[in-house]
Measured scan of single mutants.
Amino acid sequence: MEVRTIKVFTTVDNINLHTQVVDMSMTYGQQFGPTYLDGADVTKIKPHNSHEGKTFYVLPNDDTLRVEAFEYYHTTDPSFLGRYMSALNHTKKWKYPQVNGLTSIKWADNNCYLATALLTLQQIELKFNPPALQDAYYRARAGEAANFCALILAYCNKTVGELGDVRETMSYLFQHANLDSCKRVLNVVCKTCGQQQTTLKGVEAVMYMGTLSYEQFKKGVQIPCTCGKQATKYLVQQESPFVMMSAPPAQYELKHGTFTCASEYTGNYQCGHYKHITSKETLYCIDGALLTKSSEYKGPITDVFYKENSYTTTIK
C-alpha cells in the first residue's frame, strides 16, 4: 500500500517557510505537534488534498525554529505562539472599519479597549522592536488589523473576551517599542525636605499616572512627601515624541487643539466601556464603527496623549 502524501510549508514567522512532505494517514499533531492554519487549530486533523502548498504555523520545537521565533517575536515564552494563534482565530472574524481616516474595530468580545489602543497607536510616533509587531502594525494602518490585535493580546497575556485596560495595554506595548531616546527629568520640591531631581528613561519617561493635564504637570502637581507634608512635583525636561497622561476616570474637559487623542471610560472596574476622542479640525468621538463630532467635550476621561518633541522648564 502506497503512502499518500502532500507537500506543505511549516513556519513560526510566515517569513521562513520549511518544506514538509506530510503523510495523509496521520494527523498534523502526530507529525508536527500543535499546528495552526489561519489561526485555526488543526492539530487533530489529517492532511487533505486542499492543504497542498498551504502554510501551517507550528510551535518552535527545534533550534532553527526557536531562533526564527525569537528573532521575529522577541520572546522565548513557549506558550506565546499558541496564544497568538488562538487569538487570531477570533480577531480574523472582527470587522476593521476605516473611521475618520483611522483603522478602528467594530465592537465584539469586549474589544473596546483594543480599538482605543489601536486608534491611539496610529496617532503617536512609535516604532516597535519585534519585527512581528512592526509588520502587523503597518498592515493594521492599511486596514488589516487582525494579526496586530492578536499579537497585542498575546504580548499582554490576554484572551479574547476578557476586559482590558488601555493604560495597561499601552504599557505592555511600550515595553516592546523603541523608547531608548526618551528621557524625563522631574523635580520634587518640599518646604521641609528641599528639592530632589529624578531622571527617568524609556517607558517611565512617557507615562504618568495622577493627572490628565500635561500643562498642569509642567506647572506642578501636589504629591505627598515622605515627611508627610505636601510637596510639588513638576516637569523639568521632556525628550520624547509623545507623552501619555493618565488618571482614574473623572469628568474632564478636553479643549480642541490642546491634545492629540484621549480615552474615555464609562462604567466601573468590573464592567465598563471605552471610547476614543481625537482632536482634528474639530473633536471626534470614535466608538467602534461609530463616529460623532463636537466642538467641545466633557466626560469621564482616563488617558490623554500629547505630541511632544523637546521641553525644558522655565521655572527657576
Rank of each mutant, 00 (worst) to 15 (best):
Q175W: 04
C285E: 08
L179Q: 00
I6T: 12
T103P: 03
G210C: 06
H48Y: 14
H273L: 01
S50V: 13
L235P: 04
Y284T: 05
S310Q: 13
T75R: 06
L37N: 13
T103K: 04
P130H: 03
E68M: 07
P248H: 04
Y137D: 01
S79I: 08
K201G: 08
T120F: 05
R141S: 10
K54V: 12
N61P: 12
H18L: 07
K44R: 14
K298F: 15
D38S: 11
G161H: 04
T312Q: 13
H276S: 00
G267W: 03
H256G: 08
V243P: 02
Y72S: 10
M209A: 15
F128C: 04
C193D: 01
V58A: 06
S50C: 15
S295P: 12
Q195Y: 10
K183P: 07
D62P: 08
N110Q: 03
T120P: 00
K158R: 06
E308P: 08
T313N: 15
T226L: 10
Y84G: 06
K54D: 11
T43F: 08
S213Q: 02
T312S: 13
E296L: 11
T258L: 04
L186F: 13
V21C: 13
M244C: 06
Q123F: 04
T314W: 15
T27D: 11
L81C: 10
F128L: 04
T159W: 08
A140R: 02
F9C: 10
G228Q: 00
K316E: 15
Q216S: 10
A247C: 06
A177V: 06
Y274E: 03
S213R: 00
H176T: 02
Y72W: 10
H256Q: 11
L254G: 07
V22L: 11
Q197Y: 08
K92R: 14
M170I: 05
L283G: 01
Y155V: 02
T75G: 05
V12T: 09
T232F: 11
T199F: 05
D63G: 02
Q237R: 12
N100E: 14
H276Q: 06
T169Q: 00
E162G: 00
T35W: 00
Q222H: 11
A247E: 00
D109L: 06
K95A: 13
D38L: 12
T55W: 06
T10R: 12
V236S: 04
H273T: 00
K95H: 15
N157P: 01
A231F: 02
A132F: 05
T43E: 12
Y214P: 05
Y297V: 03
T199M: 04
Y284A: 05
C227T: 05
K191R: 10
T199A: 15
L65A: 12
V304G: 00
T232W: 10
V189T: 11
C193T: 04
V21R: 13
P224R: 14
M85T: 07
Y284G: 04
T10E: 05
K7H: 13
S310I: 13
K127R: 12
Y265P: 05
S279K: 00
T314R: 15
K316N: 15
L290G: 10
L173S: 03
T313G: 09
S86C: 10
M170D: 06
E308M: 08
Y297C: 00
V304S: 04
S295M: 15
T91S: 05
Q31S: 13
A145T: 03
M244T: 04
P78L: 12
G299S: 05
L126S: 04
V58S: 06
A108S: 14
L65E: 10
I301K: 01
D303N: 03
Q31T: 14
G82A: 15
V21Q: 15
T312G: 08
P249A: 00
V58H: 06
F9P: 08
D62M: 08
V203P: 13
T116L: 02
E204W: 06
A289L: 04
K158Y: 01
K280Q: 14
G143C: 04
F70Y: 10
L186V: 15
V8A: 12
I286L: 00
Y72K: 11
V189R: 09
M26A: 10
I286D: 06
K293A: 11
K7Y: 09
R139Q: 15
S246T: 02
R66V: 14
N178K: 11
E239M: 07
T103S: 03
P241A: 09
E281F: 01
M245D: 01
D135G: 08
S246R: 08
K93R: 14
P130F: 04
Q270M: 12
E71N: 09
C271R: 15
L179P: 09
L88N: 03
I277R: 03
L121Y: 03
T282E: 11
Y269M: 08
T11L: 06
N16Y: 09
E68N: 08
G272L: 00
K298D: 07
Y57P: 07
Q216L: 08
G164T: 01
T76F: 09
H18R: 11
F9D: 09
T192I: 11
E239S: 08
A40M: 13
Q216I: 06
V221C: 02
D63Q: 08
L102Y: 06
P300F: 12
T55Y: 09
V203H: 13
S310M: 14
D13F: 04
S294V: 15
M170W: 03
Q196T: 14
H273K: 01
A69C: 12
F70N: 14
P130D: 02
I152A: 08
C193P: 06
F305E: 00
A146R: 05
N129M: 08
M170A: 05
Y96F: 12
Q197T: 15
C182E: 01
P241M: 01
E308C: 06
L88C: 09
K298S: 14
V188K: 10
Q237N: 09
H273Y: 01
T302G: 02
T312R: 15
V203L: 07
P47E: 04
R4K: 15
M244K: 00
D180K: 13
Y113R: 06
G257L: 02
S50F: 14
G39W: 06
L81Y: 14
M170P: 06
Y113L: 13
T120W: 09
I152T: 12
Y269D: 15
Y208G: 03
F70E: 08
T27N: 11
L59D: 12
S246L: 05
Q216A: 13
A154D: 04
R141W: 08
T43G: 13
E253N: 10
D62W: 14
Y234L: 06
R167P: 01
H276W: 12
V21W: 15
D23Y: 10
T116A: 12
G288Y: 00
P300D: 11
G220P: 08
T5L: 12
K44H: 14
V21I: 15
Y306F: 06
F9I: 11
D165V: 03
G53A: 13
T11K: 07
T103E: 00
G267K: 08
T260Y: 00
D41S: 13
A145H: 03
F259P: 03
K201Q: 13
L81K: 04
L119S: 05
R184I: 04
A150F: 05
K307L: 13
M24N: 15
V3Q: 14
I6H: 07
E71M: 06
T76E: 11
L212A: 08
T266L: 06
F32H: 01
V206P: 04
E253P: 09
D63L: 07
F148H: 03
M207C: 10
G194H: 05
T199G: 00
K219S: 10
T198C: 13
R141Q: 14
P300C: 12
K92I: 12
L173K: 04
D287S: 00
A154T: 09
Q222S: 13
K95G: 09
V22C: 14
L114T: 06
S240H: 00
Y96H: 04
I15L: 06
R66C: 08
F80G: 02
T314L: 15
K93L: 10
A231Q: 03
T76W: 07
Y208W: 03
C190A: 01
N129D: 08
P224H: 12
T91I: 00
V221Y: 03
N49P: 13
C112R: 06
V166I: 02
K255F: 06
F174S: 04
I152Q: 02
D303P: 00
S79H: 11
C285Q: 09
G210N: 01
Q197G: 06
G202P: 02
K255P: 03
R4V: 12
K255M: 09
N157S: 07
T302Q: 02
V67A: 14
L283C: 02
R139C: 12
Q31W: 10
V3Y: 10
T260C: 12
T292R: 07
I45Y: 13
E308H: 08
K127Q: 15
V160I: 10
N157C: 07
G288Q: 01
V8G: 05
I105V: 06
Y234I: 11
G53C: 12
H256W: 09
K191Q: 12
C227D: 01
K219L: 11
L81E: 07
N89T: 14
C112N: 02
G29N: 08
T292N: 05
F56A: 07
F70C: 07
Y234F: 09
L153H: 02
